[in-house]
Design a binder for these strands. Structure first.
Lengths: 344, 344
DNA sequence: TTGTATGCGTTATCAC
DNA sequence: GTGATAACGCATACAA
């Protein structure tokens, strides 16, 4: 059942601007201007040329256009891969963010070029913005690359980054108030009488670090102490989180509450708890982070800190567009919200 | 907290090939060849030039390269939007497919350009493959555009389409055996003694049509009759499905089983059933389609027909690459699997 | 308001 | 094995 064919039938007669110019009896420049609605051209001829091009099925060659004009109409969205082999893109948070970004970029008339970034390899910053291919870059997550991102910003790459505010930051970030988010989560558990609350996540990552800070603040406020052994480090993958939680349980760690750095982590943890015969929330109350679609469908439905991804995506896009224009590109701090369901 | 800056500091000294040529004491042609590992160049000079370029931080300008060579290293992934306002990309099935495609394309050394396609507007096929911007196109879903896609294929655009096999198809498709899938779903319900089984989906779309065919076949095989009023039409959105299901219940339609055209539809239906006081699976058994991550977390966990998206994504990518090369681009039929959980 | 001329940075073609 | 030269298709400074 072959459906192949050489590019032979119906040669798409690669029309160029000169063809339209001839058809219209004007010069190429006029066509070029008319097609981008330049006010230089009389409205009547503009209209005529547009119609002619339309009928002929001509579209401007974006590659040539972008070589000459140094504008591509494309924005690169980069996903830093912390650990080589994780298929990060399939992560629900990442997918949702990408979908919102794609929607917003389309709204703004930009195309989206998706790039997985192996941040191990040196020089990824340069590869990121191959000259001319895209007008700007959105990075989803800072990973451990604060310094490298700063360098990229200093090199003049229009940038917007999803993440946390850090000292000495030369690039605009969009992100939730992670400290507040962590605080909301832990305070909620404390209010429900939980005394020994575990934090589950990789606190070396900037966003998670802030969530952890908020968590400790809330514990202090509640008069609880944050035992260091109750910081259980895990990556963002569900199976990883499940394994780390299982280990913690097996090690005899005593706890009655969990603040997870993400919903996927929380759900992995609940799996491990369930496997170990601990009931949620009776024995252990669990709070997640993100409020992905899965959260409300989890067993039990997950209490979590919602991040406003749709708003975040809009802010990221508008920020990078501002940077491209050379306008002030300010950082944006989004308010997280505690969504109380059944798990805590 | 402004983090903006004009592109002034640290001018990235836009290095070009001529600079490397001068540095190496050779011509531009030699540099060009060396950097693409042409066997024409002596291994020693090749290595020397590569190192020089590396050190200088030079990368080939992909726009200029692609204007001249007519190869972009980019593949466009198009998502046809059936209904204008649905944010289709946020659909879990779509997001998962996109993530797998992005992973696979990256593996194959291609970049992914994401395009939402408004199929209402005429001429979308042409816009899809703006000359030069990408080497080929992957379409996720045929929508109602079989004829237009055929036209694109005839025009020589290298294509691969996720969808169903249709008569007179001039383009390669990758997709599940939807007829078999529908059959598996309905047969499972029949085996469990369900007699009045509703089909929930838009049977005008090719893939859904085939699932519906399989459903009817299974009913016939089980000696049941497929009453036309048990075909309840709905789009792919969860809220839409919930509303249609609620209407069907309110209208007094009698049924004890549901075959849904997707998991999202199934979950929407279960919501409506639950709201109407019908228990799943006791009163109504429900089978979904896709096996998205959400399915196993649904209430109750959803029995569904799994599609192998990861394999599908690989097939799509390899198919479009074959088409780009001018090789035979064959269609691929993936085997669906029934995953039995608690909902049926 | 429109046309003319030049060049964007690379690669293909042809010569050496 | 390497170099010179002319495109690739368009947009802009400048001239008219």
């Amino acid at each position: 059942m072959s459906a192949s064919r050489r590019r032979v039938s119906q040669p798409p007669i690669n029309l160029q601007m000169s063809d339209i110019a001839r058809l219209a009896g004007v010069s190429e420049s006029t066509v070029s201007r008319a097609l981008k609605d330049s006010p230089m051209i009389a409205a009547s001829t503009r209209e005529r040329i547009r119609r002619l091009a339309e009928e002929a099925g001509y579209t401007v060659n974006p590659v040539a256009s972008s070589l000459r004009s140094r504008q591509s109409g494309v924005i690169t969205v980069g996903v830093p891969l912390v650990h080589e082999r994780e298929p990060h893109l399939v992560d629900p948070f990442m997918m949702t963010m990408l979908a919102h970004l794609a929607d917003t970029l389309a709204d703004r008339g930009y195309n989206m070029l998706l790039a997985k970034i192996a941040v191990h390899q040196d020089g990824w910053v340069r590869r990121l913005q191959q000259p001319g291919r895209s007008d700007g870059v959105i990075l989803i997550g800072q990973s451990f690359e604060h310094a490298a991102i700063n360098e990229a910003a200093r090199a003049g790459i229009p940038l917007a980054v999803w993440g946390s505010r850090l000292p000495n930051q030369k690039y605009p970030v969009v992100g939730s108030d992670n400290r507040l988010g962590g605080q909301l989560a832990a305070a909620h558990l404390a209010e429900r009488g939980r005394k020994r609350i575990v934090f589950l996540g990789d606190e070396r990552l900037p966003e998670v670090a802030h969530r952890h800070d908020g968590y400790r603040q809330a514990l202090r406020d509640a008069g609880l102490k944050a035992a260091p052994e109750r910081l259980v480090r895990t990556g963002f993958g569900g199976p990883d989180a499940e394994a780390r939680m299982a280990e913690a349980i097996a090690s005899g760690l005593a706890f009655d509450g969990v603040v997870a750095a993400s919903d996927v982590i929380a759900i992995g943890a609940m799996r491990a708890l369930s496997a170990a015969g601990r009931r949620v929330p009776e024995d252990v109350a669990v709070v997640g982070f993100d409020d992905i679609l899965l959260a409300e469908h989890a067993h039990p439905p997950l209490t979590t800190v919602r991040q406003e991804l749709a708003r975040g995506a809009v802010a990221l896009v508008d920020t990078v567009i501002a940077a491209i224009r050379g306008d002030a590109a300010d950082s944006t701090l989004l308010p997280p919200t505690l969504i109380v369901r059944a798990s805590a």
